[in-house]
Nucleic acid binder design. Structure first.
Lengths: 343, 343
DNA sequence: CTGAAAGCGCTTACAG
DNA sequence: CTGAAAGCGCTTACAG
């Protein structure tokens, strides 16, 4: 360990200001009235000594970590930055620290990385935590907010999610109504993925309300993943399945769909219209620009923090927050671009 | 505050195992020999009580936070996820926690969000921290590693950065040699941005070594930003400046360049070749696919953590780590795509 | 190899 | 409004 001249503590401040450490603590926390003149002396001493309270000591004494934990599975995807941005901003403005953990490369960890021992509450994205883990946390009443995942009934944990079904329905209805498509492929996400299930429901309802009968042969698995979607489309093409549109499940998968169609010399959107979901950064830049659903990802993050903070304050939290989604029409559906962003 | 039945402490474990808390501490930390049979009893007690040590108590007692801090300015950009991914993985595998702070929306914070009071060391990206702040931390010998930023001479802080100059030189030489371009615009990044300065140097050396004289009229500011780059290109075009290629400074700026050129009906790459820098996610998807430099961003993050950990262990750290960059040839330079990823 | 005890740096009843 | 003191839950010399 490198030698560092011990930085000052609350005792140093108290001595310099000529008060007790209790008084220093009170002016720092501002939760108990302190006579202004002494408060002033304390503040002077604090800035003279450049005193910064140790987080660990405060946590230990107050039994609050003042920290929120975020558990996410795929750091590094196109989805994460936006979510994180919202969460970071809101966490910070509420005066909390943010501890992040990715369960992605989860080598059997001996110690739970995030939990009651180092956070006051947890934000959990989709299936980044085993349902059993969630249940345990819920049982000890540990403050928890889920994003894009509904908890088991008995778990009464607040969840923030988006209008997946409405979004999907808008998308598919648009293909049917404006572009006269009737054989629309749907690429499912990972097994059990809730976003995918709702999107599929929206897809089916759109078909139904337009009198198009559901064809199970048009529903295949794209895993919300470029490569998987590519493979699935290749197979469909090789099998000679007929279709005039693809709802790729999400934007990442749309990339794979584009590749497969181009390889097969099917033009987008003339031969096959393609639509995605999420509106991540690259969606407007691919060619043709992707028609998709804008999900308010950053706002999902912010709202999740807000609900968690309600919980931390012992207040009531909203058990379900459903965020509106919005149709973003570009070119891959067959429209001429409406996107104000493009020239 | 919600009531939670107090979870078990080291004292509970000690009682159940019939040993002192010191012994429990020793088997947890494994730094002092403990006879196997008692160690076993302790481990049993730990799992029976589901004991997890409080981070705060350990920190306070050991005077180590076991936490690394990351200071970054622009969460939410295309660059951040990759960097974070590398940092997260390496931090975790070294057994440290990661605390993240974005200085982006830095409302005057009363308390330094990350520092000696809550971390053992800090990772700082580019200019996300004032040089004065850096100096203060350096003066008290606080472990610090910089990314993409060289410290003032007296500061002897390790830095991890990439071969900006080489990369830029490869890019510009490619334009000159393979595509016979001679009037190449360079879009600078933000004022004082080190990456930009090196890239400009590479640009100039490439010109020089090919006997092309430097024209200051071709160097304008794009700020590594889509909108700024768009505006800069518009102006160049309106001013009637002649050019046959653009090195946009980074990939984000390339998007703005594309828009401006398309708006002016200049074809890419026939009329104007365009190259970027970074190889972020969207670069292969835009049309035409962007020729750029691949920077090993994730590896920069990992290496930064490694160096910081050397510092934390009181070992010598490498004062400068320069990561290789790689030319990624796609279509915007005028080549037919070499990118194995595309069909 | 193990225990008793001091101490890490704060917060917070409890008195006054 | 302010102080003395207990206590938060660990780690780590110091003895033995």
């Amino acid at each position: 360990m490198i030698h560092r001249n011990r930085s000052s503590t609350i005792a140093d401040v108290a001595r310099l200001a000529g008060v007790s450490i209790a008084t220093v603590s009170r002016v720092i926390n501002g939760n108990t009235p302190v006579i202004e003149s002494t408060a002033l002396r304390v503040r002077d001493a604090i800035s003279e000594l450049k005193f910064v309270p140790r987080a660990a000591a405060r946590t230990l004494a107050s039994r609050r970590t003042n920290t929120i934990g975020l558990i996410f599975s795929e750091i590094g995807g196109a989805f994460f930055p936006l979510l994180l941005k919202g969460i970071e901003a809101e966490t910070r403005s509420a005066g909390y620290e943010l501890l992040i953990h990715s369960t992605q490369a989860a080598h059997a960890q001996k110690r739970r990385p995030l939990g009651e021992h180092n956070t006051d509450g947890l934000l959990v994205f989709t299936s980044s935590l085993e349902i059993e883990e969630l249940r345990k946390l819920s049982q000890i009443n540990f403050p928890l907010v889920l994003m894009h995942q509904t908890p088991p009934d008995e778990m009464n944990t607040p969840v923030i999610t988006i209008e997946n079904k409405d979004g999907a329905e808008m998308l598919v209805s648009h293909l049917i109504e404006k572009h006269a498509r009737r054989r629309i492929v749907f690429l499912q996400g990972p097994e059990g993925h809730e976003d995918s299930q709702w999107r599929e429901r929206g897809y089916r309802e759109a078909l139904e309300s337009h009198g198009i009968s559901f064809d199970p042969g048009l529903v295949v698995s794209g895993e919300f993943d470029e490569e998987q979607a590519f493979a699935a489309m290749r197979k469909l093409l090789l099998d000679g399945i007929e279709f005039d549109a693809v709802f790729s499940g999400d934007d990442d998968a749309a990339i794979g769909v584009y590749r497969a169609l181009k390889m097969a010399n099917r033009s987008i959107p003339d031969d096959v219209a393609v639509v995605g979901f999420d509106d991540v950064q690259f969606s407007r830049y691919i060619s043709p620009a992707l028609t998709t659903i804008r999900a308010p990802i950053e706002e999902v993050g912010r709202e999740a923090v807000r609900q968690l903070i309600h919980l931390l304050n012992g207040e009531q939290a909203q058990s379900l927050t459903l965020m509106r989604t919005e149709l973003v029409i570009r070119e891959s559906c067959g429209c001429k671009s409406h996107d104000s962003h493009k020239s």
